[in-house]
């Protein structure tokens, strides 16, 4: 019997592992979506997602505590929507107290007239609107600014998107309690000091955020720095400090 070279064996093993991992994801109900466009801009962030693809047709949750953080969250979200929408998308924006300034979306390459805003005061109505909107496959994405969301409601929404393959974004600004939700991910975005091409220029540079992906189903949570530059995401690579180094710095 002829022995195979060691490298070839390991290659085969890796293939088997990859195949098995894909099988596990499939069994766990994760549907593969081809959205290579979205991943191209996200850089190292995309390896956090299952199959290294940003999960569409799911609910994502963004939590912010301060107006500054909300603005940063909206910036990151606008970046995502820019890639999602393409030239012919439509987004529904549901909010009880809307502060979003539509013309500002233009600076993230979005067309503000492709957004439909629904201002509902009552939480009950807002949930109904969100549920109905998520069932409509003509929409690219649905954004709901609802600070408080119970597990039952979030589960309803998640079930709705699984059928329609619409991507839902839940913005929770100063929630009473974080709680558990059925959303597949939870993000915290906070602003970082902006940088220019080189730091010598005066004034404000490209918007830059610290993205903390606290929870992601079937993926690997993590934290990254990212900035919005020339109409696309640009990951910021920084020297990674190990625990010992930080301790040394501190003490």
């Amino acid at each position: 019997m002829q022995r195979q070279p060691a490298t070839k064996v390991s290659q085969q093993k890796a293939d088997i592992f990859a195949g098995l991992q894909a099988d596990i994801l499939r069994l766990q109900g994760f549907k593969t979506v081809q959205n290579t466009v979205l991943d191209s801009g996200l850089g190292p962030l995309k390896y956090a997602f299952p199959n290294a693809t940003f999960p569409l047709g799911a609910m994502h949750e963004f939590v912010s505590a301060k107006p500054e953080e909300t603005a940063a969250t909206l910036g990151f979200l606008s970046g995502l929507l820019n890639i999602l929408m393409g030239s012919n998308g439509a987004v529904l924006w549901i909010s009880p107290s809307r502060m979003l300034f539509p013309p500002a979306l233009k600076s993230f390459g979005l067309n503000p007239d492709r957004f439909i805003f629904i201002d509902v005061q009552k939480e009950k109505d807002a949930l109904w609107v969100l549920d109905e909107a998520l069932k409509c496959s003509a929409l690219t994405a649905v954004v709901g600014e609802l600070p408080n969301m119970s597990f039952t409601h979030s589960r309803r929404l998640q079930l709705a998107v699984e059928e329609s393959q619409v991507t839902g974004f839940l913005l929770r600004n100063q929630p009473r309690a974080i709680g558990t939700t059925a959303c597949i991910s939870r993000w915290y975005i906070s602003p970082l000091p902006s940088t220019n091409e080189d730091d010598n220029l005066p004034g404000i540079g490209f918007p830059k955020w610290h993205v903390h992906l606290q929870r992601i189903r079937n993926g690997k949570p993590g934290a990254w720095d990212i900035q919005w530059k020339d109409g696309r995401f640009a990951p910021v690579y920084q020297p990674v400090f190990t625990i010992q180094q930080t301790q040394q710095q501190a003490g």
Partner: peptide, 16 residues
């Protein structure tokens, strides 16, 4: 739209 959206720096969150 009858005109274009201006690409001036504008804040995403605007106080009413």
């Amino acid at each position: 739209p009858t005109t274009v959206w201006l690409d001036n720096p504008r804040p995403l969150q605007l106080l009413r």
